[in-house]
């Protein structure tokens, strides 16, 4: 008789409960991604505002320097995390694709609108949205308020 032949319904229920417990633990530990995405959204907002509203070339230098100082610690924080919840790679890819499209859509016409708050403030908000929206969706997912994967 194999080990599985001796499994009772109580044993099966206990195994399912253990699986639920472990899944909840992974989701809880996966909350780091929410912080990462929030930080990325906030950094995007600040970087685009500095780029557009500070006189050039200083604005360009400050914005690039801001990314150079803030991005490495954020990446280091991400690679040190011990677990990535299921679906993380896809949600990160979607966030970065949306961010790239919006960043280029704001920056390319923006070269003709240096110092114009009417362009750069809404533009900065738009560029920050992928990070903030991704953080909201990830938060729903890791707290179990969204549909299961």
């Amino acid at each position: 008789m194999s080990e599985r032949d001796g499994l009772t319904s109580a044993g099966a229920a206990a195994a399912l409960a253990r699986a639920d417990e472990l899944r909840a633990s992974v989701r809880e530990r996966g909350r780091w991604l929410v912080r990462f995405q929030l930080a990325y959204g906030a950094m995007s907002l600040v970087a685009v505002l500095m780029l557009g509203l500070v006189d050039w070339p200083a604005g360009i230098v400050i914005s690039v320097a801001f990314w150079a100082v803030t991005l490495p610690p954020l990446i280091f924080y991400a690679v040190r995390q011990p677990v990535a919840h299921r679906g993380m790679a896809r949600s990160h890819l979607v966030m970065m694709a949306a961010w790239t499209v919006l960043y280029l859509a704001v920056l390319m016409p923006g070269t003709q609108m240096q110092g114009e708050p009417g362009w750069w403030v809404p533009g900065a908000v738009a560029v920050s949205l992928p990070g903030f929206v991704a953080a909201y969706l990830t938060s729903r997912r890791v707290t179990g308020r969204a549909a299961r994967p």
Binding site: E3, L7, A15, R18, P82, V83, R86, G87, M88
Partner: peptide, 20 residues
């Protein structure tokens, strides 16, 4: 998978993309 430790390992990894 049925062995308890292996079941727990697989259940953990099922919720994760990867885990240390």
């Amino acid at each position: 998978i049925h062995a308890p430790v292996r079941f727990s390992i697989v259940a953990t990894l099922a919720a994760a993309e990867k885990a240390e």
